[in-house]
C-alpha cells in the first residue's frame, strides 16, 4: 500500500482545517471498510487519512419525537439496528444496515461512509431517501444542509467541496401510519453488491386506506441513487390497491437508466426495478398498517 499520514482530530474544526490544507489528497476515515481497501488497491489515493471517530458530533445517535433522528456520520451499522426504538421507527434504514456486508462489516461500516463512498449501488442511500434524510455538511464556510438524494453527483463523487465533511444525517420523525422497506436483488443470500436496490415508504390516512405521502428510491440503476417522485405520486389516488403498485413500478422502471455489467444487463435490471418496487411497496404498506 502506498504510504500516507494519519491524523485523528478531536474536533470538527481541526478536521476541517486538515481537509482544507490537504484538499483532494486527504480522505476521511470512518469505519474504513471502503477507504482502506480502496487505498490499498490503488482505486483512491490519499496522502492523509483523517480519522473522524474521535470527534463527538459524528458519533451522535439520538432520537427526539419532534426533531427526529440524528445519525452521526461515523456511527457503525450495529449501533443503529441494536437500538430498539430506532429499529421500530425507521424500518427501511434498519433493513439496509442489517444487510450490508457481514457482521464484521457492520461492526465498523457507517451509513455516512456508505453515502460518501457514493457507490451507485449503496444499500443505505435508497433507505435514506425514503426516510427523507438531510445531510449536515460542515466546512470552512460553515454548515449547510443537503437533501440526501442530491448528495451523490457521480459514481464515487459527492457534493462535498474542499474542506467539507459530512457530520450527520437528520431523518425527520416518521409520519403517522408510516411504513418503509428496503430490499435488493443479489444472486447470493448474503454478502453481495446490489444488482438493483429499491426503497419504498408510505404514510397512510387515519383509516389506513389512502396513501397521503410516499417516497421511492432506487440504487444500481443510474450513476447515482435516484428519488422517483413520479412513481410515488401514482400512489395518491384513492384507496391503495395492487394496481397502484403496478403503476408505480412501471414509472420506477421508466426512471431507471441502468447499464449492463457483470452483475446484470440493463434489461434484467429494469425488470428487477419493477418486481422489487412492488415488493418494497407491499411490505411498506403492511408495516404502515401495523403502526
Amino acid at each position: 500500500m502506498e504510504p500516507f499520514d494519519y491524523a485523528a482530530p478531536k474536533t470538527l474544526n481541526e478536521a476541517i482545517a486538515l481537509l482544507v490544507e490537504r484538499g483532494d489528497r486527504a480522505r476521511v476515515l470512518a469505519g474504513g471498510t471502503d477507504i482502506i481497501v480502496q487505498v490499498r488497491e490503488g482505486r483512491r489515493h490519499a496522502d492523509l487519512l483523517v480519522d473522524i471517530k474521535r470527534i463527538p458530533e459524528v458519533n451522535i445517535l439520538h432520537y427526539d419525537p419532534r426533531e427526529g433522528l440524528r445519525l452521526g456520520a461515523a456511527v457503525p451499522c450495529y449501533r443503529i439496528y441494536e437500538d430498539a426504538d430506532i429499529a421500530r421507527l425507521y424500518p427501511g434504514l434498519i433493513d439496509a444496515v442489517s444487510l450490508i456486508g457481514g457482521i464484521q462489516i457492520q461492526s465498523r461500516a457507517s451509513v455516512g461512509g456508505n453515502l460518501c463512498n457514493a457507490s451507485p449501488a449503496a444499500d443505505t442511500v435508497p433507505a435514506l431517501i425514503v426516510h427523507e434524510a438531510r445531510c449536515v455538511v460542515m466546512g470552512p464556510a460553515g454548515q449547510r444542509l443537503v437533501p440526501v438524494e442530491e448528495f451523490c453527483v457521480a459514481p464515487g463523487r459527492t457534493v462535498l467541496g474542499r474542506g467539507e465533511l459530512l457530520v450527520e444525517l437528520r431523518l425527520p420523525p416518521p409520519r403517522p401510519h408510516f411504513g418503509a422497506h428496503y430490499l435488493r436483488f443479489i444472486p447470493r443470500n448474503e454478502m453481495d453488491i446490489a444488482v438493483v436496490g429499491v426503497g419504498a415508504a408510505v404514510a397512510l390516512d387515519e383509516r389506513r386506506e389512502r396513501c397521503v405521502q410516499a417516497r421511492i428510491g432506487l440504487a444500481a440503476v443510474a450513476p447515482t441513487p435516484l428519488l422517483v417522485p413520479e412513481a410515488a405520486a401514482a400512489l395518491m389516488d384513492g384507496p391503495l390497491t395492487e394496481s397502484h403498485f403496478d403503476r408505480a413500478a412501471a414509472l420506477a422502471q421508466a426512471a431507471a437508466r441502468p447499464i449492463s455489467d457483470l452483475r446484470g444487463d440493463a434489461a434484467f435490471r429494469r425488470h428487477l426495478v419493477g418486481v422489487l418496487t412492488k415488493r418494497a411497496l407491499r411490505t411498506a404498506l403492511q408495516r404502515a398498517r401495523e403502526t
Binding site: 485523528a8 476515515l29 469505519g31 474504513g32 471498510t33 482502506i36 450495529y78 464484521q104 461492526s107
Partner: peptide, 13 residues
C-alpha cells in the same frame, strides 16, 4: 468485543 476484519482496520486506530 466486536467482530472485525483486521485487514480493514489500521494499526494506528
Amino acid at each position: 468485543g466486536r467482530l472485525v476484519n483486521s485487514c480493514c482496520v489500521l494499526g494506528v486506530e
